[in-house]
């Protein structure tokens, strides 16, 4: 059985329109499906506002999907009973981009890390909890002297480690990582990525790893989803998509990575256009307004995500199935 199965997930927000009392809907996540096994990482990339965090929040029950299903070990998370839901909240943890915002500034590191252990009733004896906290801090490369200090006394990378220790405290199986290294300098980013990889090996953890940095995603992910305006435009083995992107948007993303410009790209005209507002998703293919290859059909008909090989899906009229 798959650890996580997401089927045709949709998240729609109700937003204020222009006119008085006008109501409009913003489709932040549109028909997304994917699966994740134990001990694996699925990466999610896409530009600002494409719906990455909305998807992440729905997995940790911070956002209610408008449609679709999320199954965890075969059970639909939206109709779990209380005990099941409590266990789900323990099994699936989230770490955030801003490690400062996600730690309570008034709590010592020890109290922050111990919070989940207490709430979940995993341990009750204070000395037992304290020992566990120190073990966790050591696991993420901090030492016992950190326990009595406050988040503001730590650097960004250290705070991110504290966030990870806090997530690990309740023995999760899946961690949703929403841009966990985007705010960090490269030297610290490398430390945090290495740590996440080690933890995956040690505990068979699964990750949904969100980032806009394709080099990071390549380093850590087995599978990859490329998202554009709420939709998945390409999905499959990370290595394959990064070395041979099929969707014109994936190609544009990869060619835009600083430092990745090669001689061959010199005649490439460059990326073009602005990302349309999610309130005005163009009809047809969502990417057609920026696509260098767009044809008449792309403006009219929305391409479906279809397999070009059994595990590699692309949503583009112009990409043919491979044999």
């Amino acid at each position: 059985m798959k650890l996580l199965e997401v089927q045709e997930l949709e998240i729609r927000y109700r937003v204020q329109g222009n006119g008085f009392r006008e109501r409009r809907y913003l489709q932040a996540v549109n028909q997304i499906s994917f699966e994740l096994d134990r001990g694996r990482t699925i990466g999610l990339v896409g530009e600002s506002g494409c719906g990455k965090s909305s998807l992440a929040r729905s997995l940790v029950l911070l956002e209610e999907p408008t449609n679709g299903e999320i199954r965890y070990q075969g059970r639909n998370i939206l109709n779990m009973n209380r005990a099941e839901r409590k266990d789900y909240r323990r099994s699936v943890q989230m770490i955030f981009q801003d490690p400062y915002g996600s730690l309570n500034p008034k709590l010592t590191v020890e109290a922050s890390v111990a919070e989940g252990i207490r709430l979940q009733g995993l341990m009750t004896k204070p000395d037992q909890i304290q020992k566990e906290v120190i073990r966790l801090l050591e696991k993420v490369g901090l030492d016992a002297s950190a326990t009595k200090r406050y988040p503001r006394q730590f650097s960004g990378g250290q705070r991110q480690r504290i966030g990870i220790a806090r997530a690990l405290a309740v023995r999760p199986e899946l961690i949703v990582c929403d841009e966990p290294v985007s705010a960090l300098d490269v030297s610290v980013q490398a430390q945090v990525i290495n740590l996440l990889r080690e933890l995956q090996t040690d505990f068979q953890l699964s990750y949904l790893f969100i980032t806009h940095d394709l080099a990071v995603v390549e380093n850590i992910s087995h599978e990859l989803m490329v998202m554009y305006l709420g939709q998945i435009v390409e999905q499959g083995p990370a290595k394959k998509i990064i070395s041979q992107p099929k969707h014109p948007y994936s190609q544009m993303l990869i060619a835009s990575i600083p430092g990745n410009r090669t001689e061959a790209d010199e005649n490439w005209s460059g990326s073009r256009g602005d990302i349309p507002s999610p309130l005005n998703v163009p009809p047809g293919c969502p990417f057609h307004s920026r696509c260098p290859l767009a044809e008449e059909r792309c403006r009219l008909e929305r391409p479906l995500l279809k397999p070009i090989t059994p595990r590699h899906l692309v949503a583009c009229h112009l990409v043919a199935t491979e044999d």
């Binding site: 490269v186 030297s187 490398a190 990525i193 290495n194 390549e218 290595k239 990869i254 990575i257």
Partner: peptide, 24 residues
């Protein structure tokens, strides 16, 4: 040299990054 090695590079696949110990 350490900065260049710490940054993940596209096309280099999955590997342990050469982190710089400590912080600025």
């Amino acid at each position: 040299e350490a900065l260049l090695e710490a940054a993940p590079r596209i096309g280099s696949g999955q590997h342990r990054l050469q982190a710089i110990p400590g912080q600025v």
